[in-house]
């Protein structure tokens, strides 16, 4: 390695130590200055090392881009695609997993965190202008349920959740994923892994071990447990949905009511 690189490395090491000392001493302004110096030194190092490597064949730079037209779909459409497959209110993490398993992949949970807010803004400024909105699931207090995404075209009974709904929706999701897998000629391995993971948590869905789950077995097992919960869950959901229909404005029906105003009726 050449001399300027050595010198730069030493400088970088010193600066790092200084930054950490400054951070430790809570001297944020000094830390910022030092960090800037550090960044400059690192950039200089990057440049120097490139110059030095110039003679060698170029490495493949940058992350490999996915070769899929679908990846170019807007995020909201990718999310919608996953929701259509699952058909129940779903947490962002599972949306990402389903997208990864069956579709383009490349979604990240943080991208989804502001989605509901953006959709709400759009709806408020121009109601029903879009064919669908990515909206909230509603709790039995008619407030938005944390972290769940739903489709505005679903009936209210599907978009509200009671205490049993997380389980019911989980089992439903497993059934939907398993059914979708059986429709595919070549089940993607990522999707099989996703289903196998879910199957671990459904009694009777796996025959021991960590091997790939059989979709038909999963469907059977999940339906069996669903039968236990469905009547109560359906009744609870119908009750909440009726209240939501009576008490909420259009925008609240999609995005939930503020927690304070909905103390009536629940608990």
């Amino acid at each position: 390695m050449s001399e300027p690189l050595d010198a730069l490395e030493q400088r970088i090491a010193e600066l790092r130590a200084e930054v950490r000392r400054a951070v430790k001493a809570r001297d944020t302004s000094l830390a910022r200055l030092l960090r800037a110096d550090l960044r400059r030194a690192e950039r200089a190092w990057d440049e120097a090392v490139v110059t030095e490597e110039a003679g060698k064949p170029a490495e493949e730079a940058g992350p490999a881009l996915r070769e899929s037209g679908a990846a170019l779909m807007p995020i909201r459409e990718q999310v919608h695609q996953a929701l259509l497959l699952l058909g129940v209110p779903t947490a962002a993490k599972l949306v990402v997993a389903v997208n990864e398993a069956f579709f383009a992949g490349g979604l990240r949970s943080p991208q989804l965190s502001s989605l509901r807010r953006d959709e709400e803004r759009s709806f408020r400024s121009d109601p029903y202008a879009r064919p669908y909105y990515l909206c909230a699931a509603l709790t039995d207090r008619l407030s938005p349920a944390r972290g769940l995404l739903a489709d505005s075209t679903w009936p209210l009974e599907v978009r509200v959740v009671g205490p049993l709904s997380p389980r019911v929706d989980f089992l439903t999701t497993a059934v939907r994923i398993a059914e979708h897998l059986t429709r595919l000629a070549e089940p993607p391995p990522g999707a099989v892994r996703l289903l196998s993971r879910m199957a671990q948590n459904i009694p009777g869905a796996v025959e021991g071990g960590f091997g790939p789950a059989d979709p038909a077995t999963v469907v059977g097992a999940a339906r069996a447990e669903l039968e236990v919960h469905l009547p109560a869950d359906t009744a609870q959901r119908a009750e909440v949905a009726a209240r939501a229909g009576d008490q909420l404005t259009d925008v609240e029906r999609l995005f939930g009511a503020a927690a304070l105003s909905t103390l009536r009726g629940a608990c």
Partner: peptide, 8 residues
């Protein structure tokens, strides 16, 4: 590295 898994 996560963003660009290069030798550098």
């Amino acid at each position: 590295y996560e963003e660009a898994p290069t030798d550098r």
